[in-house]
Nucleic acid binder design. Structure first.
Length: 216
DNA sequence: CCTTGGATGTACT
DNA sequence: GTACATCCAAGGG
């Protein structure tokens, strides 16, 4: 047998992100998101993502143009766009396309492949398969918050990196409408891997359960 | 398994 | 004021 070689995985290059957002979204399935934020290493294999098309996409945060919140989306590709939502959760995207455009891929779910003990400390009582099952859970597992907004994920030694995973066969990729999106319900820009326990449960866009109808 | 409703920052009408 | 790229606890079947 040959000698053992420790391979240093190089992050996906910036040009990976400088492509149509749907291509990037599909390409991210199976890739490994690595975070050293908080001082401990956690790695997640991505199993579910959604594409958002910037100013042309009514479901995108960028649809109404730049704002203080979404400005990272208008910057160069290969950076993290992190936003705060519902008064308590953070969600993370990866910016795609050239600077000046604003498309991005929302990272919805993944499987923890390294640092499960770290996540267990961050999420007491939560089951392993739920550690990154949903976009806000994923950021919690990686210790990603507002401070990570704008972080470059292409650098060799940064705290947030995306590494190529083992290849994903095309026929294991599924697609459908985006979750929790009230508009563009016919746009199948949610992508996930078939038969993955970490994929977040499907909810029809726009039908928000439990919010009660208008008071009468 | 399912459903309901509360928490509550930010953008927008 | 309302909607939102959400999650979680609690209660019923």
């Amino acid at each position: 047998m040959g000698q053992r070689v420790d391979v240093v995985l190089t992050p996906l290059p910036r040009q990976f992100y400088d492509r149509p957002v749907v291509d990037v979204a599909r390409g991210l399935l199976g890739a490994v998101l690595e975070s050293a934020l908080g001082g401990e290493l956690v790695r997640i294999r991505l199993t579910e993502v959604e594409a958002y098309g910037g100013m042309a996409d009514p479901a995108s945060h960028a649809f109404r143009g730049p704002s203080a919140r979404n400005r990272t989306m208008f910057g160069p590709p290969g950076r993290a766009y992190v936003y705060f939502t519902y008064g308590m959760h953070f969600c993370m995207n990866l910016v795609t396309g050239a600077a000046g455009t604003a498309s991005a891929v929302l990272l919805r779910a993944g499987t923890v492949i390294d640092g499960a003990d770290v996540v267990a400390r961050r999420r007491p009582g939560v089951r392993l398969r739920d550690y990154a099952r949903g976009p806000a859970r994923l950021t919690k597992a990686l210790n990603v918050d507002r401070a990570a907004d704008g972080e470059d994920v292409c650098t060799a030694d940064g705290p947030l990196r995306v590494l190529p995973g083992v290849g994903v066969a095309d026929q294991t990729i599924r697609c459908g409408p985006r979750v929790g999106v009230a508009v563009a319900g016919d746009v199948p820009w949610r992508f996930w891997l078939a038969d993955e326990a970490s994929v977040s449960p499907y909810r029809p866009g726009g039908l928000r359960r439990g919010r009660g109808s208008t008071r009468v």
